[in-house]
Design a protein around this nucleic acid. Structure first.
Lengths: 239, 239
DNA sequence: CATTGCACACTACCATGGTAGTGTGCAATG
DNA sequence: CATTGCACACTACCATGGTAGTGTGCAATG
């Protein structure tokens, strides 16, 4: 049905990876809804590939908690689980705070702040043009810079993996322009604290920045109760 | 060749998982040595399974950085990389410190300390009987207790995944009895600091405890230079 | 109507075959 | 001897077929 793009650079990406990316995207955007059935056969048909890459993609999605697989019964899009959000949030916070502390004691604080302010300027521009996609790319670059100056660049992919679950929750609510302004203000506050060399303050502001997701949860749950995991209802139903 | 055990409880484990566990174990114990070739065919023959579960196991091992896969060329056991150790160490430290802080501010510090001291007593017994396997199980339980009291039990599996790389380095050196005594002393010091409610001291002792791996690295590299990644030599050779 | 039994459908899981792409060794050539 | 060309071997990757296990709907039975 849908055509899958090849990789931009060099050889084409393996089909399993392409299928994973496509399903991942659709799940995050709620084009595939929680509890929707996703069998090897249906995925294979939906994307026009054989069952092997479909199976590999489903297995990996299950490992990352975006799909629930019940052996011999079937697979479905995982509902939103507060437990997943909680774990992702906790781990991301721990990692980003540790990166921040290490980056600040690297002796290159000035260069880091310079890079951060450059990204902030970009972010201001993207908000003006309402280019939210570029904005979020720059947001990732902002956090990536800190990982870089902490001499731990390979931690960034792990953080992005955690961020996926938070993004899924976030996609439930429309991103208003004032939200982006808030993010920029928080970025500035963080850069200021780094420049001042105040580790405790920087940490406090980073945590506040990362926890903004919790402001939306109640509203999201009221608006889309069907997308959230019922209190063990389906667990009982499975018996 | 070798028979694979089924799962202890209920249904048998999928073959792919059994193959993964077996290869993982052999790689950590250096029964499969760094740079040793591991093709789908060779794994399939070695363990007496078909190529499908062998392939799935290799893919997952590659994701976890225990195997290097070069498309259309072949796979091999990954050499020891300081980068992997560094990332695992950094992340584990960040997570365990965050868990410790949260557990200490949970208001259940007394119960936590009681549980920790119980594990320490067990550990003393295991050292007496030279039962290192049970000792390390209790060591994991010790750290798991902290995750539990931090109300983040699902972070523990992630930490164990990181610990694998450190264990691989550790397995290079023989675990002497005095090392286990050192671990117990450090556990006691941590429990003491928690009991005293001194967060900074507990954090400091936890970090010292987690960083003990670095004491062995130089010795290990001198003893088994072939197991470590050469400075990009094989990267050049691949061109 | 309520309960039971059973054929059927569907699933995850495994086995197996085919193919394009890359490296390797050796003969041909200088 | 040094260099080149090329047949061959081996690989990761994908397609496809088969199977045991579980759920479901409907007819049979009370």
């Amino acid at each position: 049905m849908a055509l899958l793009k090849s990789a931009k650079s060099g050889r084409p990406m393996p089909l399993a990876r392409q299928v994973y990316d496509e399903l991942h995207k659709r799940i995050l955007r709620f084009e595939l809804k929680p509890y929707q059935v996703l069998s090897e056969a249906s995925v294979s048909e939906m994307l026009g590939v054989s069952r092997t890459p479909a199976r590999e993609a489903l297995t990996k999605l299950a490992e990352n908690k975006f799909v629930d697989v019940v052996p011999q019964r079937g697979s479905q899009v995982a509902p939103l689980r507060l437990e997943d959000l909680d774990r992702s949030q906790f781990m991301r916070e721990a990692l980003e705070v540790a990166l921040l502390r290490r980056a600040m004691s690297s002796g290159e604080g000035a260069a880091l702040v310079k890079g951060l302010r450059k990204e902030i300027t970009l972010q201001r521009t993207y908000v003006t043009f309402e280019d939210t996609e570029s904005f979020y790319a720059s947001d990732e670059a902002f956090h990536g810079l800190i990982a870089e100056y902490a001499k731990q660049p390979s931690v960034l992919p792990e953080i992005l993996r955690l961020k996926d679950h938070m993004d899924r929750f976030r996609h439930l609510m429309v991103a208003a322009v004032e939200d982006l302004d808030t993010i920029i203000k928080q970025h500035i506050a963080i850069a200021d604290a780094i420049e001042a060399g105040d580790e405790a303050l920087a940490e406090e502001r980073m945590i506040k920045h990362l926890r903004r997701i919790f402001d939306y949860i109640d509203e999201a749950r009221d608006k889309f109760p069907d997308y959230f995991e019922q209190s063990e209802e389906h667990v009982r139903a499975a018996r």
